[in-house]
Nucleic acid binder design. Structure first.
Lengths: 218, 218
DNA sequence: TAGATTGTTAATCGATTAACAATC
DNA sequence: TAGATTGTTAATCGATTAACAATC
């Protein structure tokens, strides 16, 4: 048994591989090479082979990778082969949109509870879920065995919610609020920062378009 | 006049700096050091100084950075000092949530047109905007001088929409669909991949919590 | 002045890519 | 077998961090 440190960059690519492999599987394609994957996903084939090789020898030399086998392996690596319960806090437009997003189901991840700080929203229904007040958070996380929290509250409330999630025993947080959050060791935070993505996009407009990465300054 | 290649990593941090500086400015704080910024944003102070130094000498030795001056500079670097018009395609839950998101205004970026492939949705109102059919896209992009497109359609339609955006003269695309998109040179694509963020979060659950970056495999 | 903090160079660290022997 | 493609090492590339002279 060997022990590796797997870099974050590698782990972040695995869901990209998984998603495309699922498409291939649905199209009835049985085998894929790192070459094929690289072309479709805009990545270097050597990088893909190296990423996968951290976890085992999943391919066959001269042949490529069996699509369904690789799907199974990646799902196992990412721990998507067992159900993962998710709680969401913040039932604004974005929070409600995510609750309606149905993709979680097919990956064994599922939003099982929804909370809002606004007591007036208590009892409101979103899909099959009923909005609960924040003071229930800790109990519900324990009872329903929730391990991931999603934050879709305004920026100024996000750190408080992150703290409440951490205290309640959640192990991962997906933050949509446009603010850098902190969590204690043992709680991992991923940040979906679409406002930053949009603002940084502005940099590449106009005069930077001819040459993708050159900026001119005095 | 010098010419630099500014790395993507640097550009992606600028909006993070900008956001926090705006908070400081609103709190009436006039001066900030790279030390302060680093602590709050969880970044190395040397990295922050280096990032800023690519674009000029914005700080004062022994003192730090003037908050409002730095805001002005970063806004200029990111080209947020002139208005940028944005079009959105796909009026599902997520698309409507983004239209209602009001932050664009204060950064001179504004969604000025909304489209949907479903002709039945034509004329539907979202806030002050009226949903238009896709065949109007090219004309509207030209007429309203739109330079950025947001994609919030299902994965299987996203590449088609990206192609239509590119053909219409848009220079940047923010894609929310869970699929890798391609665009011709001169059109930059940023990807907001929250499904991938969520799936990769699963990897860090349980046994990985003691040591943040160690994975154990046979 | 003494203390603080920048701007910048050099050192380090880590991630990507090329190359190729192994082998299907 | 001949052609293809993996797994893996070595080379390259790029990004982060440490250190410190300059100077406010």
């Amino acid at each position: 048994m060997k022990s590796f440190k797997i870099s974050e960059a590698v782990i972040r690519r695995l869901p990209i591989y998984l998603r495309f492999l699922n498409d291939l599987s649905l199209s009835g394609i049985q085998t894929v090479s790192s070459q094929d994957l690289g072309e479709k996903l805009d990545l270097n084939p050597a990088q893909i082979r190296k990423d996968l090789a951290y976890f085992g020898e999943f391919g066959r030399k001269g042949v490529g990778y069996n699509v369904d086998y690789l799907i199974e392996k990646i799902r196992h690596i990412l721990k998507l082969d067992k159900p993962l319960n998710v709680a969401l806090v913040g039932t604004g437009n974005l929070g409600r949109a995510l609750c309606n997003y149905n993709m979680y189901l097919k990956d064994n991840m599922k939003i099982v509870a929804v909370f809002d700080a606004d007591e007036a929203k208590r009892g409101t229904r979103i899909n099959h879920l009923t909005v609960q007040p924040m003071r229930e958070l800790k109990d519900v996380v324990k009872t329903l065995d929730i391990s991931v929290g999603i934050i879709t509250v305004p920026a100024q409330e996000a750190q408080t919610v992150a703290d409440q999630f951490s205290a309640s025993g959640v192990k991962g947080i997906l933050n949509f609020a446009p603010v850098v959050l902190r969590a204690p060791a043992g709680v991992r935070i991923h940040h979906v920062d679409f406002t930053a993505e949009l603002l940084s996009l502005a940099y590449y407009m106009d005069d930077h378009t001819e040459d993708k990465s050159e900026g001119v300054f005095e």
